[in-house]
Design a protein around this nucleic acid. Structure first.
Lengths: 332, 332
DNA sequence: TTGAAAGCGCTAACAA
DNA sequence: TTGTTAGCGCTTTCAA
């Protein structure tokens, strides 16, 4: 058996309450007593049992993070932001992958609540009705990170994807393009369907350009799929000349398709994408991109969650973080 | 307050023990009773408190994962492997980033033990004496993933990095190269210092080639540093013609340095690297690489840990996974 | 400044 | 097949 607070109390000739006070930094302990207790703790190698503490205090200093897939750089980077702020406030993280499956999301959500997390950061492509009603009745704070909140009024942290997409497409238009394609991630992701695509269409409409169905290409967000889908664009009688990609993995898939077919960027095609990883900078030509502050998205989400868990008043619970466009070699 | 096992017991007119049995799938419950209890659980929305359960049963069905940096694709991918097997065996994961700092590693280790994890998967560049002695006295199983075990006899899961490096360099030698550089990750990482570098040197020695100091270049494992360090090789009077890179981020940094300086791959330089991400496939020319089964490394580590946690006999606790070389466009 | 004692919500003997 | 009961290792009143 491992040593308990009782063992320490006996060894130090004090009550367990006193040991508890020392361990928790309570000031109402005579310095001499504190010193004695600390020595015994050291000598016995006492390590407080966080589970017992959690049961007694009803706080676990653990938060839940539910993410579609930690192996994607988008979520890995974002999670790192969460983790660093969590460390700062001395929270641990229980991390689970949902693969975006709604039933799995609900399971994990229930599971995390069962583990008595003090708060939860949730990421998803889209909120199902089930998860929304679950969240509505949860008794711990929840923050949505990089996830759209349709009608419930949950706290969220995001960037303005619609505006960012608009700016990207606007830039292609300003560079003289009339035929601009949007190679998107899955429409099942709210941000793709309700933000990026909408921003793309707004820019075209505003410039008096037609919305051409063939210029919208949906991918599953992977490099390989984008590489294949390029052929759809290539085989068009009137190929687009400007391409707006939903992220850099898609962008690089298209770029390689273009170049493997003997075309040039930005000579034959100009490109802009959202940047979620190193990829857009590591290829040649480097891709002009909307830089998404993934780490900050995570860090701010966690900071917001700490306030909520502390019961602090938060004036604005729908945070929009700044982003920037970085012009590189895929545009002129 | 949330509903407890007591509330369910009262509602169903049974004892809490019976409710506990139902919840835990104990067969010694009359079907009719079970049905009644299940109904009450449903009606009241009872959700077992895992913290109380953990305290009573001394099992938390939670494991700890300590990782240098989850935002690096290497660890993100590996962690996904861990997570999937953890899910399979119904374990949750507490995930923490150490940034490879030894003091932090010890803190996290203690912290995870305090949280009463049932087991731990640890990843690090190198095991400090402190962490080794901590692990020696821990009362839960520990598995090292992608981490060298110097003298303690902890369970490990790895690939044979030394042999893989040897094969990579051997291939460059077979392709006729006499001057082969090794652009490595930090020497503070055991696997770099004791495996990859050693494999590189063995291949050279075996071929009767001299070990030239200038042909060994250490980087901090980042794209940007590798891009800069390329200049060290470029400015040599006798440039190497074959390059063995410690991973694909380094490889692509070097590749871009080469190409931005107007040289060609594989024309002027042939390259091979270890593959940890999409990068090596997404660049042009695609890099010939040793494909490291990161996901499997994680999955096998977790599988091994489950056996250890179950007290099963494990014949071999030092697992070496297979890897393969994928020939692409950076070699002839 | 310290201690006694009542839980926190559950599991797991043990008894019936 | 079911119930009783004694903890699990802490926190947190309340009293002293």
């Amino acid at each position: 058996m491992s040593v308990t607070i009782y063992d320490v109390a006996r060894e130090a000739n004090v009550s367990m309450a006193t040991v508890s006070r020392v361990v928790n930094g309570n000031q109402n302990v005579k310095p001499a007593t504190r010193k004695k207790v600390l020595e015994c703790i050291e000598r016995l190698g006492y390590r407080p049992n966080a589970v017992a503490r959690g049961l007694a205090s009803k706080k676990t200093t653990t938060i839940g993070v539910i993410v579609p897939d930690i192996s994607k750089s988008y979520y890995a980077e974002l999670s790192r932001g969460i983790a660093d702020v969590a460390t700062m406030y001395e929270y641990n993280i229980i991390l689970s992958n949902s693969d975006k499956r709604p039933t799995r999301e609900v399971e994990l959500f229930e599971d995390h609540l069962g583990k008595q997390v003090d708060g939860l950061i949730f990421m998803s492509d889209s909120l199902s009705e089930e998860i929304k009603s679950g969240m509505a009745t949860a008794n711990v704070p929840i923050v949505l990170a990089g996830t759209l909140d349709s009608d419930t009024n949950l706290p969220t942290v995001n960037i303005d994807h619609e505006e960012a997409a608009y700016e990207a497409v606007k830039k292609l238009i300003d560079n003289g393009h009339k035929r601009i394609a949007h190679v998107s991630g899955p429409m099942s992701r709210d941000i793709n369907r309700l933000c990026k695509k909408v921003g793309y269409e707004r820019a075209l409409r505003e410039a008096g350009l037609p919305l051409i169905e063939e210029y919208f290409v949906e991918t599953d967000n992977t490099y390989d799929d984008a590489y294949e889908k390029w052929k759809l664009l290539r085989d068009l009688d009137e190929k687009p000349t400007g391409i707006f990609a939903g992220n850099d993995e898609i962008g690089v898939g298209i770029l390689n398709g273009i170049r493997d077919d003997g075309f040039a960027v930005p000579g034959d095609f100009e490109m802009i994408c959202f940047q979620h990883s190193l990829l857009s900078r590591a290829v040649r030509p480097q891709l002009t991109a909307i830089v998404v502050p993934l780490y900050d998205l995570g860090a701010v989400s966690m900071r917001l969650l700490t306030k909520l868990m502390n019961g602090e008043e938060v004036e604005e619970t729908n945070v929009a973080l700044p982003y920037r466009m970085e012009e590189r070699q895929s545009t002129k």
